[in-house]
Write a protein that binds this DNA or RNA. Sequence first.
DNA 1: GTGCGGTGGTGATGGTGATCACACGAGATT
DNA 2: AATCTCGTGTGATCACCATCACCACCGCAC
Lengths: 238, 238
Amino acid sequence: MRAPYGLNILDNCLTCPVREEHIFCNLSVHAGQRLNDIKSTAVYPKGAMLFIEGQQPRGVFVLCAGKAKLSTSSREGKTIITKLSDAGDVLGLNSVISNRPYEVSAEMMEPGQANFIPRESLLQFLKDHGEVALRVAEQLSRNYYTAYEEIRTLGLATSPSEKFAKLLLSWSTKSTQNDGSTPVKLTLTHEEIAEIIGTTRETVSRLFSEFKKRQFLQLKGSTLLIRNRPALEKIVQS
Amino acid sequence: MRAPYGLNILDNCLTCPVREEHIFCNLSVHAGQRLNDIKSTAVYPKGAMLFIEGQQPRGVFVLCAGKAKLSTSSREGKTIITKLSDAGDVLGLNSVISNRPYEVSAEMMEPGQANFIPRESLLQFLKDHGEVALRVAEQLSRNYYTAYEEIRTLGLATSPSEKFAKLLLSWSTKSTQNDGSTPVKLTLTHEEIAEIIGTTRETVSRLFSEFKKRQFLQLKGSTLLIRNRPALEKIVQS
DNA sequence: GTGCGGTGGTGATGGTGATCACACGAGATT
DNA sequence: AATCTCGTGTGATCACCATCACCACCGCAC
């Protein structure tokens, strides 16, 4: 159960929304207090850019409410979305730690709220609180795993249909209905889906048509129903 | 100047081959001693697998001599090489820190030597020496950047020729000759190159032909000469 | 209403690269 | 010598998907 989206202001959203892996939770009283001092909270409208690929890292953003998409672009304007972030995610951590430019851009997909922690303050904080540094390392290695999943998807799954099926399955994860079908709220445009799996909008549109015709899935408004998960899994097989 | 390859046994190859970013260098005397106690050195023949994708992490390997390739495979046998490692690289760090299965396989490409540090010992060591944990975090974020480069290459550069050009340029980096051409020792098979840029052996072979005909490069035995770097850079443009 | 931007569907076309197939040479092994 | 294996070159074919083009729709602002 995560906080509902939209503009719900949390008094102190560093206290985590039930995510045990959250690196800034369960700190010592002292560390928690210190963190409170160096953070600042802000509200962002839809479309706001938290940071942009190539910028020098100013600090990290702890997302409290709303969703953000992380993307990287080539000079010719081709864009890939590498991650969709939820409340609780820490954005920009890698750049801050290694002091390299942000490797992605972060854009709010809906209105939301985030805590900002300036780079220098965070680094000093980590030096003073060695326990947290290890948590940071763990978070970084989780990020690394996510990146590797991406590499596997892009590098090993050749056809768009395979990547599309993979994406659908990653959405439908847990919550299976008793009749075996799985409802998912669909909030992305075909264009954005295309940018996730590295293909074109038209291809995504055709894939939806095809999968609907083949009874793999069904669309009711913006609700997506997986009707034949085994078939999708067979397409993936990577 | 790095140690020559082949089977040169180093007394204590934790002392680094001039790589200031090496996480296990410049430690306090105490930490260095402790590290010496928990590491063990071994020699590996060509083709030896240090670890295999999916295995539970046993520990990290600090490569002292020789090269290794990191790769991941799909069920159907398609393989991508994600990184070529040199002496000084630390392999398996991410898996050990996050206690997840190795995300890649590591295979020696030539005879070499590596220090092994068991997982438990390393973690305890990091807990006792907070200074090193931050170094580890930095290393992880460097790894992350490398992974992101890979994502950009796979996701944004569409054509094989673009990825090929990109790879050639990454090889020829610094050492430009006075006549503008750049010699690179070529140690990979076409098959392996194909696995790096995510295409087929035949395509790589054709790319070599094409680039030779277009005077972009030249081959003398196993020595690769970049003859027209601007042309390659123009192909890349991502 | 009318216009307009964002989104989604779908046909036609063409280029490109994967795939299959085969041939060649260099080294190793017998 | 006679194979065998491994890496390499190259032709022919063909499915697939990016691209272009156009239309339909929806919501929204004026």
